[in-house]
C-alpha cells in the first residue's frame, strides 16, 4: 500500500488567553482541545471526508496537515517526510505538493489582483518555469476548470465573477502547481445550490486527471456522501467513527453518527423521518467531558461512558468506532 498521509496521535491544544487579573490569581492554564489524539492514514487516490459540526476540530486538522499550525504533539508523515521537521525552503517544496481550497472564494482572492495573475503568482512564487511558460500554464488551467475561453477571464477581477466562477479560480490556483494532495475546506458551502454539483463534479474529474488525493472537510453529510470514499466523523477533537462511506452511512455504529444522519433535512416531503436528536449543543472544547466526549448528550449512555474513554476499535473490516455500546 502506498500511503501518502499518515497521521499518528495528533494533538493540538490552543492556550486560552486570560485577562491580566485572572493571570494574577490563577496559575492554571487552560487550553482549547481542538484536536485531541487522532490518527488516520490515507492512501494515494483516496477521498477522505472529515465530517463534523463547528468546533469539532475538523478545520484545525486540515491546517495541521498543511503545517499552517504546529501540532502540540503527534506526527504527520506526508509522502515519507515528517511534516513537523520541515523548515524554510523545504516547506515551500512541500506546499507545492499539498494545496488548500478554502471555503470562501471571495475571501481567498485579493480583490485587487486579476484572477489570471492570482494563479500565475502561485507559479512564480514556487519558481516554476519561465514567465512565458507561467502564462501558458495559467491559460491552460483556466480553460481546464471551465473558465473558457481564458481570454474572457484572465484579466478580470474577482468581483466581476460569480460565486461559482470564483471558486473555479481558487481550484485552478490550487492545481496549477500539479500537487499530489489537495485539502478542501468546505469547498461548496458558499456556492449557490444549483451549481454545487457542478463544482463537485469538476473536482472529481480533476482528481482523475491529476491523480490527486483529496481530504474534504465538511459539515454537509449529503455532500460527503456524494463525493467521498471514506469518512471520519469528528466530535470535540476526537474521531468517533471512521470507515468506508457505504459502511458509515448505511450502517452507522456510533450514536452520534446516527444523530447526525437523522438530522439532515431530506428533500422529499414523503420521506419518513425517524429522528434521534440529541439534546443541547456541542460542549466547550476547553473542558471537554470526561470519558466519552459524547456521553452527556448520548441517549444510550451508561455509567461506564462517563468514566472511561472508549478507543477506536475495528468492529468490521476497516470500520472503526469509539463506543462501548455501538448500535447494530
Amino acid at each position: 500500500m502506498s500511503s501518502i498521509l499518515e497521521v499518528t496521535n495528533l494533538k493540538k491544544y490552543f492556550p486560552v488567553e486570560k485577562s491580566f487579573l485572572d493571570k494574577l490569581f490563577t496559575s492554571q492554564k487552560s487550553y482549547v482541545h481542538a484536536v485531541d489524539d487522532i490518527s488516520f492514514s490515507m492512501n494515494r487516490g483516496d477521498i477522505l471526508g472529515i465530517v463534523g459540526e463547528s468546533g469539532s476540530g475538523k478545520s484545525t486538522t486540515a491546517r495541521l496537515c498543511l503545517k499552517l499550525v504546529e501540532p502540540s504533539s503527534g506526527s504527520i508523515v506526508f509522502d515519507g517526510m515528517d511534516v513537523a521537521k520541515l523548515g524554510g525552503e523545504e516547506i515551500r517544496r512541500f506546499r507545492r505538493n499539498m494545496q488548500l481550497i478554502f471555503q470562501d472564494p471571495t475571501a481567498s482572492l485579493s480583490p485587487r489582483i486579476k484572477v489570471g495573475d492570482a494563479i500565475r503568482h502561485a507559479l512564480s512564487f514556487q519558481g516554476v518555469s519561465t514567465p512565458s511558460e507561467q502564462t501558458e500554464r495559467t491559460r491552460a488551467i483556466l480553460e481546464r476548470v471551465g473558465l473558457k475561453p481564458w481570454s474572457n477571464f484572465y484579466n478580470r477581477y474577482p468581483h466581476q465573477l460569480s460565486g461559482g466562477q470564483r471558486q473555479r479560480v481558487v481550484i485552478a490556483r490550487a492545481l496549477v502547481l500539479n500537487p499530489k494532495f489537495v485539502v478542501a475546506d468546505e469547498p461548496i458551502a458558499m456556492v449557490d445550490v444549483s451549481v454545487r454539483a457542478q463544482i463537485l463534479e469538476l473536482m472529481l474529474e480533476l482528481k482523475k486527471e491529476f491523480d490527486l488525493t483529496y481530504l474534504f472537510i465538511t459539515h454537509d453529510l449529503a455532500m460527503a456522501n456524494y463525493v467521498c470514499r471514506s469518512i471520519a466523523i469528528m466530535y470535540l477533537g476526537k474521531i468517533l467513527e471512521t470507515g468506508p462511506k457505504e459502511e458509515v452511512f448505511s450502517r452507522p455504529l456510533h450514536p452520534y453518527t446516527l444523530a447526525l444522519l437523522s438530522s439532515i433535512p431530506v428533500p422529499d416531503p414523503k420521506a419518513k423521518l425517524e429522528r434521534i436528536i440529541p439534546k443541547g449543543e456541542i460542549p466547550s472544547p476547553i473542558n471537554p467531558p470526561k470519558g466519552c466526549r459524547f456521553h452527556p448528550r448520548c441517549p444510550y449512555a451508561q455509567a461506564v461512558c462517563s468514566e472511561r474513554e472508549p478507543q477506536l476499535e475495528e468492529t468490521e473490516p476497516s470500520h472503526m468506532v469509539a463506543c462501548f455500546f455501538p448500535r447494530t
Binding site: 445550490v193 444549483s194 454539483a197 463537485l200 453529510l221 456524494y226 428533500p267
Partner: peptide
Amino acid sequence: ALLKSVPNITKKDQVLSWIPGT
C-alpha cells in the same frame, strides 16, 4: 433542475445534475 441538484442522503448512487451558467 433545482430539485435534481440537491443531494439526498437517503438515496444511494444518486446522480446530481446542475444548472449550467449563472
